[in-house]
Design a protein around this nucleic acid. Structure first.
Length: 363
DNA sequence: AAATCGGGGAT
DNA sequence: ATCCCAGATTT
């Protein structure tokens, strides 16, 4: 097994790095977060629990991931249980969490692990679907004690400030992280840097007065820690319009399994995007032809934002001689739940109107 | 290197 | 409204 330290030789002795390690790990031992995937001894954590947590937490804040984590582990307590489950059940347990390729890859990897056992080093983890450099470093350091430095959003921000580097490249961050990693406690060091970034060295208004390593921080000495790193330019969200059909009701409806990278594997209302030079009626006609449906009234419009697109969907009630399925058992995106809410609100409105006009409503 | 892939929290 | 979140994969 080849490690980054052996490839470039041991790092030269640096008193500054030693003091930084001591100060941050001392703080971590005192104030580190108590999280449900941190069961077991340091460097020997349960690989299944760590792996699931690392996948779940990709681009997902810890506070929000906690609930999903509990639900997912209850549904699939072991990698064998996960491997044996149908994909629909895995996506149902992932429902609402977003980035559903994570769940599909987790399921694929579970089958490999069920057959071959858990990988025993960084390279083995990296070879699994859905496992990139960050996750391989996290699992191999936390569960195997391997000296691999993680590079995530927290690490990038913390190191950018420590070195006052406003535009840290991914390569630069990894080099700095490799250099600072405490080879005696790699798992704890990785957890410590991420805890610092998540609770003290936060993006806006960092709490430098409570920071255990402010004495080592170049950005702090400059007096402008909040200026590091510089914000990343993000592409503007694309405007998308679509039409969808509700055939049935909020409990039993005609659902289609979505394919492709966007919400792939999830179920949802039959939907057609309105092309650039189209009207809603054009897309509706395609939907009507595809399903053999009779389109009725428009129930309302749903707005849904998804980082890289801004979605506006007109929901129509329709009738068709097609099998409906129970909505409760299927994994749906937030978008489709919003569409079903439109139906529910309309039903509530009609019920209220009926009460108002009913002779019994006065009683 | 840049785009894509969800959804929500914090400000 | 903007930026970000224990990133990975595809283009």
């Amino acid at each position: 097994m080849t490690l980054p330290v052996s490839a470039s030789g041991p790092a030269p002795f640096s008193p500054e790095v030693g003091a930084l390690r001591r100060d941050l790990l001392g703080w971590f031992d005192r104030a580190g977060r108590d999280l449900p995937w941190r069961l077991g001894d340091e460097g020997r954590r349960d690989p299944y629990r760590v792996w699931v947590a690392e996948i779940l937490l990709q681009q997902t804040q810890v506070a929000r991931g906690l609930g999903y984590y509990e639900r997912f582990l209850e549904a699939f307590p072991t990698v064998q249980a996960l491997a044996a489950a149908p994909q629909d059940a895995v996506l149902k347990a992932w429902e609402g969490c977003g980035y559903y390729a994570r769940a599909r890859n987790l399921h694929r990897a579970a089958a490999i692990i069920d057959e071959q056992g858990f990988p025993q080093d960084y390279a083995g983890w990296l070879a699994l679907p859905g496992v990139g450099p960050y996750t391989a470093a996290a699992v191999s350091s936390l569960a195997l004690g391997e000296p691999r430095a993680v590079n995530d959003g927290n690490v990038r921000r913390v190191l950018s400030r420590l070195r006052a580097e406003a535009h840290p490249s991914d390569k630069w961050v990894q080099e700095q992280a490799d250099r600072l990693l405490d080879p005696a406690r790699p798992g704890a060091w990785n957890e410590a840097v991420m805890d610092l970034g998540a609770t003290i060295c936060v993006p806006k208004s960092p709490a430098c007065d409570r920071c255990p390593v402010s004495a080592h921080c170049a950005a702090y000495q400059l007096g402008q820690p909040g200026d590091f790193p510089a914000p990343k330019a993000r592409p503007q969200a694309r405007e998308v319009r679509a039409v969808a059909l509700l055939i049935g009701d909020a409990e039993y409806a005609v659902l289609e399994k979505r394919e492709g990278s966007l919400l792939g594997g999830l179920f949802g209302l039959p939907l057609e995007e309105i092309g650039a030079r189209e009207t809603a009626a054009d897309a509706l006609a395609r939907l009507q032809a595809r399903l053999g449906a009779e389109v009725k009234e428009c129930l309302g419009t749903v707005q849904h934002g998804m980082t890289h697109r801004r979605l506006s969907v007109e929901v129509y009630r329709a009738e068709a001689d097609r099998p409906r399925q129970p909505v409760r058992g299927a994994a749906l995106s937030r978008l489709d739940h919003k569409a079903l809410d439109v139906w529910r609100q309309r039903q509530a409105g009609l019920f209220g109107a009926a009460l108002d006009s009913s002779p019994l409503g006065e009683a």
